[in-house]
């Protein structure tokens, strides 16, 4: 049976939104920890960057609230009034999942539903402890969903969810790196100068790369290494290299099952070829911000090509 175009679109976006919710939860978690460690001004900067990474800076400014843990954490988790909160991502994910109930296993659907039920009757994240509690819940249920997807038949449905997740992850990591780097190393400052250890640890926490870093780099925490890890190391699932590879793999597998191959495949393969030649020190020299900006743009173009190729409606 050939898959409905709308179903394909909903599955893809289901993957994207769960990933986005999970990423935002990680970011909030890492920022709460950072805030707990920092002196006051650093804490404010940390929350400002969390807003910026999730494209929420302008929307939050419009609320007129001060940038501090309580209001920002609430804004990023429970706030139904704007589209950039975890609860709204989950709402989108659940709506997409509902619309494709028949393409999901019960296990996958219940995982999404449990994710949604985390937020029922909750209006305030409360203090740091309960915020951590909430985001940990989100991360746990998101892992549950991921597990359920892995246990589904490896068919078009699974592949489209994973494709959406990979495209989303690529955007998230690039954005995280871009914003944090800009924040931590204001113009003119040398990479490798005196850095705030805690800040860089936050980045690693957000992409679950603390252990990976220790495995790969014997030296202490160095920005150049963090950038190298997050861009070029395909062993790290949330690195740009890994996302780029995964997109190609999912598209290949989809082509095998559906016979649909086209623009998106060509773009994804061109991207992986470039990625394999990318050296992080060259990126730093020629401008990390420009590199990441181009990457994010290209990722968005690929997203549009996927929508055309699978006739999303």
């Amino acid at each position: 049976m050939r898959m409905l175009s709308r179903t394909a679109s909903a599955l893809y976006w289901l993957g994207r939104y769960v990933e986005r919710a999970d990423f935002t939860a990680r970011l909030v978690e890492a920022t709460v920890r950072l805030d707990a460690l920092s002196a006051k001004p650093a804490g404010e900067a940390a929350w400002a960057s969390a807003l910026s990474v999730t494209y929420n800076d302008k929307a939050f400014a419009a609320t007129g609230q001060s940038i501090s843990q309580q209001p920002v954490a609430r804004f990023l988790t429970l706030d139904m009034t704007h589209p950039g909160s975890i609860v709204r991502y989950i709402e989108h994910a659940r709506n997409n999942a509902r619309a494709v109930r028949t393409a999901l296993t019960r296990e996958a659907w219940t995982a999404i539903n449990r994710l949604w039920l985390l937020f029922a009757h909750r209006s305030s994240p409360g203090g740091a402890a309960s915020t951590l509690n909430l985001v940990e819940g989100v991360m746990a249920e998101a892992r549950g969903f991921e597990g359920a997807i892995h246990r589904m038949m490896r068919n078009e449905a699974t592949l489209l969810i994973q494709l959406g997740a990979a495209i989303e992850r690529a955007d998230n990591t690039a954005r995280l790196l871009d914003v944090k780097y800009h924040l931590l190393l204001p113009e003119g400052e040398q990479v490798g100068g005196v850095v705030d250890r805690d800040q860089w640890t936050t980045i690693l926490q957000t992409v679950s790369a603390v252990t990976a870093y220790r495995w790969l780099y014997s030296e202490g925490l160095k920005p150049a290494n963090v950038i190298d890890l997050l861009i070029c190391h395909a062993e790290l699932p949330r690195s740009l290299a890994a996302c780029v590879e995964e997109v190609v793999e999912q598209l290949n597998a989809l082509a095998k099952r559906t016979g649909l191959q086209g623009e998106a495949d060509r773009m994804a393969r061109a991207r992986i070829a470039r990625m394999q030649k990318t050296r992080s020190h060259e990126v730093i020299v020629s401008g990390l911000h420009e590199y990441l900006k181009a990457f994010i743009h290209e990722n968005a173009m690929l997203d549009a090509a996927i929508a055309r190729q699978f006739r999303f409606i």
Partner: peptide
Amino acid sequence: IELVEPADLIVDDDVVYMQTIAGRV
């Protein structure tokens, strides 16, 4: 069998089709 919404269906030449990733069925 497929669960479709109205937007998934089109009628052309007095025949109903559903819109799939591989085209009309």
